[in-house]
Design a protein around this nucleic acid. Structure first.
Lengths: 223, 223
DNA sequence: CGCGAGCTTGACGTTGTTCAACTAGAGTGG
DNA sequence: CCACTCTAGTTGAACAACGTCAAGCTCGCG
C-alpha cells in the first residue's frame, strides 16, 4: 500500500487519499539482482520507478560504447526522466548496483494524477527544475574542470549524497567512477592514486576515506 | 496586447482569454542594445522574458571567467530557467547578440497561471523536459566528442536552428563559438580552418557556408 | 589450483591549451 | 585626412593534459 510506504517520495504527501490509491492500484513491485537493467535507453517509457531498496546508476549511453553516469539513485527516490510528458521514451539506462526493489507506477496513470492535481504538478516542476540546476553545475564540472577537480567532485558526491559518510565502501567500480567524470578508467585510477599519495584520501580496494576535506574541497573549486 | 502578439509562444494559446489578459496586465516591454544583459546569473528571477525581436545568448558563467553557452534564443522564444518554481534565482546570464526587444512577464503572476491552468502546467512540463532531453545530448556532445565533432555540432546548430539556412552571417564571435563548444578561441579557429581547407565549409569573416553537409554530418556522429 | 574480471602501472602518442606575436578593421581625436 | 588605439581574429611553437596500449597484478570463485 502506497499510503503506508515508508520509502515514498515526500512529494506523494501532496496527493489526496484517492489519488494515492489510484497510483496504488496501478503499480507493481519488482526485485532486481545486482547488475540488472530496470530501464533501457531508447525503449518505451511506460512506468516510473520508485526505489524502496537498493541502489542504481542512471547513465546516458553515448558514443563508442562510452557511458556518462548522471546520477546514483537509492531508496526513497523516484526515477522518471525527460521522456515523461514528451516522447515517452527513456533517454537514459538505469542499472542496479546492488540487489534492488522498486515500485513501477504506470506512467499514464501518473500523468493523469499530474493533470488532476496542480499542486502536485507544480511540485513535479520544482523537482524537475532542481534537477536542471544540478545539470548546469554538472556541465561546468565536466567541461571546465580538469581531472583532479572532477574526481574530487565525484568523491564528494559519493560521500555527501550516496553514502552520507566520510568513510564508505563504494558500490561502483572504477569504470563507473570514470563514467561519472568523463574520463578513462586508467586516468581515474591515476588521480585516485595521486590523492592517496598526497594524503587527501585513503583507498583500500572499495573502501574510501576522506582525510583532508579542506584541500579536496579546494581542488573542487579551482578545477 | 498579448492576445494579438504575433510572436507569442504557441504555448500561450492554451490559456483562456482571462489568463492571457492577466499576463498582459503584468508585463512590460523593454528594448536592449546589442551586448546588454537581460538576466544576470545569481540575481533574482522576478520575470520571464519573451523575445519579440532580436537574438541573445544564454550562458552559464563558470570557472576562471569561462562561459558555457547553452542556447541561442530568438524571436518567439520564452526564457525562464530552472530557477522558476525553485529558488527564484537566475542560473544563467542572458546577453543580447543584436538589438533586441522582449516582454518581461512577472514571474509570480506567471506561476499563478501555471497553478490555475493544469493543461498549461503540463505543457510547461513538456517544454522543460524537451529542454532536458537536449541537455542530455549536449552532455554527450561536450564530453565524448573531440573538437572537430563539437565544432561541427555548433555549425549545424547555427545553420539548422539559429539562421535556418546553409549560408548565413553569424551573430556570434569566435569566442562565443568557443564558449558553445567548451574549448579555447584559438582551438575553435584552428578547427574552422581545417574544415575550410578540407572544403567542408567556406568562411569569410562572419559569413559561413556549408559546402559538404554529408561529411560534416559524419564528423558530428563519429565525434 | 587455476581462471577470469576488475584493478593497477608504465611508456608512449595524441589532443588541446597557453603564450606570444602579428594582422585587420572600426572607431576616435587632432 | 592621418595617426592612434582598441578589439577581434589569426598563426605558430612549446607545453601540459589526457587517452591508448600493453603488460602485470590481485582476489574471489569454481
Amino acid at each position: 500500500m502506497c499510503k503506508d510506504c515508508l520509502f515514498k517520495q515526500p512529494l506523494f504527501n501532496i496527493l489526496n487519499p484517492n489519488e494515492l490509491e489510484t497510483l496504488n492500484q496501478n503499480r507493481y513491485e519488482v526485485r532486481y539482482k545486482k547488475g540488472e537493467t530496470i530501464f533501457k535507453q531508447g525503449s518505451a517509457l511506460t512506468h516510473i520507478a520508485c526505489f524502496t531498496h537498493g541502489m542504481a546508476k542512471i547513465y546516458i549511453e553515448g558514443l563508442n560504447n562510452r557511458n556518462l553516469i548522471i546520477k546514483i539513485v537509492k531508496r526513497g527516490e523516484m526515477v522518471g526522466g525527460p521522456g515523461m510528458h514528451t516522447d515517452f521514451k527513456h533517454h537514459f539506462t538505469v542499472t542496479t548496483l546492488t540487489d534492488t526493489q522498486v515500485c513501477l507506477i504506470d506512467a499514464e496513470t501518473f500523468q493523469d494524477v499530474v493533470k488532476s492535481n496542480n499542486k502536485f504538478a507544480l511540485a513535479m516542476m520544482k523537482k524537475i527544475n532542481t534537477q536542471g540546476i544540478k545539470n548546469f553545475e554538472k556541465f561546468i564540472n565536466l567541461t571546465q574542470k580538469q581531472m583532479p577537480g572532477r574526481i574530487a567532485d565525484a568523491i564528494f558526491y559519493l560521500s555527501d549524497f550516496v553514502h552520507e559518510s566520510d568513510h564508505f565502501d563504494v558500490v561502483i567500480s572504477r569504470q563507473d567512477l570514470a563514467d561519472m567524470t568523463a574520463m578513462t578508467k586508467e586516468s581515474a585510477i591515476r588521480i585516485l592514486k595521486e590523492f592517496k599519495d598526497a594524503g587527501l584520501i585513503s583507498v583500500e580496494g572499495n573502501h574510501f576515506e576522506i582525510l583532508d576535506k579542506e584541500t579536496l574541497r579546494k581542488i573542487c573549486r579551482t578545477g
